[in-house]
């Protein structure tokens, strides 16, 4: 069974702008997918619909068996617990330590503190930040902050990890490091990863499936390893 099933999906904003039109895509469990496209192509809207930050105007978006289009506001949290999300701007809480930032995600869903500790330690190990558990976000480099963000996203073992331009603020070496961590998560835990990015070098290098979005339409669905930077433009 596919983890994500998008059928005839449209998103029209209140101001009349059509962000996504007639979108169809299936994503299997355990896939690692890049989503690329110019700014304003509808890439972010597509990503946001997956975690129900935006609701499709028409069509269906099914994530892990939940139809996002029909999901009521009060039930959104059920979907979010199955998903980890990583952002370009990290969204870490400056007054909490690295450990507390990761633990916050579990506390927020009412987990017992005894269960929280081992999970947080493991998540920090996975991103190589166990030694920085007591540091505050402003004491970390950009790459390290993004790793904390990944740890927070994977701490509850989500089925799906959505990354919205996670390397947007980072230099090429660090970006590669982040993508490597994501690949590890994908391989080790079988977590499905969807990553929106502008970094086409990395996309080509990783040889994964690539969704190329243009003007709100899925212009091309590249199979594993078939994406080449110079061909796409």
């Amino acid at each position: 069974m596919n983890l994500i099933e998008v059928k005839n999906c449209y998103k029209v904003y209140n101001n009349g702008v059509t962000a996504v039109a007639d979108f169809n895509v299936s994503i299997e469990k355990g896939e690692f997918i890049f989503v690329i496209g110019a700014s304003g192509s509808g890439k972010s809207t597509f990503i946001k619909m997956l975690y129900r930050e935006e609701r499709p105007t028409n069509g269906s978006v099914i994530v892990g068996g939940i139809n996002v289009a029909k999901l009521r506001n009060s039930k959104v949290y059920k979907l979010r617990r199955k998903i980890g999300i990583v952002f370009q701007d990290f969204k870490l809480l400056p007054k909490l330590t690295v450990y507390e930032n990761v633990a916050f995600a579990l506390e927020a869903i009412g987990m017992h503190s005894k269960e929280i500790r081992p999970k947080v330690v493991k998540a920090l190990e996975n991103v190589g930040l166990k030694d920085k558990a007591r540091s505050f976000p402003n004491q970390l480099s950009g790459g390290e902050q993004q790793r904390v963000c990944i740890a927070r996203a994977i701490v509850n073992n989500p089925k799906l990890l959505i990354c919205d331009e996670p390397t947007g603020n980072l230099d090429p070496d660090i970006s590669q490091e982040i993508v490597n961590i994501l690949e590890n998560v994908n391989k080790e835990f079988g977590t499905t990863i969807i990553m929106a990015t502008h970094d086409r070098e990395i996309v080509e290098k990783m040889k994964k499936r690539v969704l190329y979005i243009e003007n709100g339409v899925l212009a091309k669905d590249y199979a594993k390893g078939s994406y080449k930077v110079h061909e796409s433009n």
Partner: peptide
């Protein structure tokens, strides 16, 4: 705000 946004994203229920 920031805290609330993160709570929403990680799936904290509305009541909590």
């Amino acid at each position: 705000r920031g805290e609330i946004d993160i709570m929403r994203l990680v799936g904290a229920s509305n009541i909590s």
